[in-house]
Design a protein around this nucleic acid. Structure first.
Length: 286
DNA sequence: CGTGCCCCCTGTCAGC
DNA sequence: TGCTGACAGGGGGCAC
């Protein structure tokens, strides 16, 4: 479900209302969502105060002022997996809340922050400063940061023979790109999804850099892509689905009206969508 | 080390 | 109507 634009949208919806709130109690209907013992998770988070909500790649990063003075700055990292989401429930909200609650953070005064996840592929982890830094360093650059440049992208591509679609999905290489935006960016840059990363020309890697940034920014502006169950923190769908040009469009005419038809190709167990006329297969692949 | 494949889990939809 | 299989936004582990 959620890639960078969806995580960013949820972050924006949560940051202001959460700031300063204290976690009164943690309830864990689905302990398998935690990477730590639930007792340890609970003891770290209960009583802590939300300072801010950040994001790293597809992960939400909740900055917490801890109760324990030894490591006063905790970060709770939430990976949303395929179907995870975060909802802020107000005390006067008489709805039943999300249908698949996984971890519930009761807040001081009123209301609750709820992590919900039908498929339960998501994970929540609490890090101290040191461990967080190590975790973050293992991820690739943020594609919307100024440090991510056409030349840094070209450098990264040059060292790998991976198909470019797989390369883009690898969070150690770039953080935050998932299957939807990888395919959309490759269409934008007219690169076949199976092209080996190290065979992408300098021109094409500049085009890919540009397409990635443009598509991710546009998708954030649209509050993400809702195909089925993704919702913002406010429960509303994102609208970028109507801007998709290849993802999920197998058999439909190419958005460029080139006369081609969008095709679906499966590799690494994931579907890839592309226009065979705009994104010709590199000759030696066959 | 890099890469591809399977699996985790639940829900939805197409086809019969 | 109901069954079955394919497929879904992610990523860890394992074999090669």
């Amino acid at each position: 479900m959620p890639e960078l634009p969806e995580a960013e949208t949820i972050r924006r919806g949560l940051a202001a209302p959460l700031r300063g709130r204290v976690v009164r109690r943690v309830r864990i209907p689905r302990p398998d969502l935690l990477t730590q013992e639930s007792d340890r998770f609970t003891s770290l988070v209960e009583g802590a105060r939300f300072l801010d909500v950040g994001r790293r790649g597809k992960n939400l990063v909740f900055e917490l002022a801890a109760v324990d003075e030894n490591d006063p700055h905790l970060r709770m990292v939430v990976n949303l997996g395929m179907s995870g989401g975060m909802t802020l429930l107000r005390a006067d909200d008489d709805s039943t809340g999300p249908s698949h609650p996984g971890v519930v953070f009761d807040l001081d005064g009123e209301g609750a922050l709820i992590y919900h996840d039908v498929r339960r592929f998501g994970r929540l982890t609490v890090f101290g400063s040191r461990a967080f830094s190590n975790w973050s360093q293992a991820l690739g650059p943020e594609p919307l940061d100024s440090s991510f440049t056409p030349s840094s992208l070209a450098d990264g591509l040059s060292g790998s023979r991976s198909p470019i679609r797989s390369w883009l999905l690898d969070q150690k290489r770039i953080a935050g790109v998932g299957n939807i935006y990888a395919n959309e960016a490759l269409f934008g840059a007219r690169i076949h999804p199976r092209t080996p990363a190290n065979r992408i020309s300098a021109d094409d890697s500049r085009g890919l850099h540009h397409a990635l940034q443009r598509i991710l920014r546009d998708a954030i502006r649209a509050r993400g892509t809702t195909l089925q169950d993704y919702r913002t923190a406010l429960g509303t769908p994102g609208s970028y689905a109507s801007d998709l040009r290849v993802y999920g469009r197998e058999g439909r005419p190419c958005a460029r009206r080139c006369g081609g038809t969008v095709e679906r190709l499966v590799f690494s167990n994931r579907s890839s969508f592309f226009c065979p006329r705009c994104q010709p297969e590199p000759s030696s692949l066959n």
